[in-house]
Amino acid sequence: MTRKVFWDDPYLCTLDTTVASVAGDEVTLAATILYAESGGQESDHGCIAGWPVLAARKQDHGIIYTLPPQHGLQPGAAVTLQLDWPRRYRLMRLHFAAELVLETLYQTLPDVEKIGAHIAEHKARIDFALPQAITPHLPALQARIDALIAANLAITSAFSDAASGRRYWALPGIAHVPCGGTHLRHSGEVGRIALKRKNVGRGKERVEITLLDDTPT
């Protein structure tokens, strides 16, 4: 079990910890700030003791990191982790933007079904099962989301069940959503966004989200 410090403090960019286990080029850590892809949010980029993390994957309640084969780390070794923060921050902003799109859509179109989502560094997408085009709903959707972002609401994020590692984020009174991603503190950090509809086949609609502000202030 790896202590997931990215949940306690999603804004932490460096962390001192120890290597828990080593199996060839795969290592596990006592604690980590490097997120492994889950719930559609891509894995972080970063370094462990100066070695670039080539891959990260969840296994049970732990995370396994793949390092270059010549890493030479031993179990118990003290290491410093470094997070590619500009990438992570974009992932967090796009992730929360996608959450707002989803929640707003659920409240606008009853019975809409989300069938996929992916959060990458420069673009997020959500796929829905929907018989009709989503285009006519986009302006109203955008207006409601812009209002939620402009209101700069406080976002809470915590365990719903610590034993099983289940978490949620919430905008009190607006939404309470199970999710194990890393979340912003305030909705305003998302900044301005653009929504675009893509046709991905019969009965399926995709909404793509991009960030219009590089560094929100």
């Binding site: 659920y106 409240q107 009853p110 019975d111 809409v112 079904e113 989300k114 069938i115 099962a129 959503v177 199970p178």
Partner: peptide, 15 residues
């Protein structure tokens, strides 16, 4: 799981 949604009363479901 292949999908998710929210019912009329605001309860989240998974397909």
């Amino acid at each position: 799981p292949t999908g998710e949604g929210v019912d009329a009363a605001g309860h989240r479901w998974l397909r």
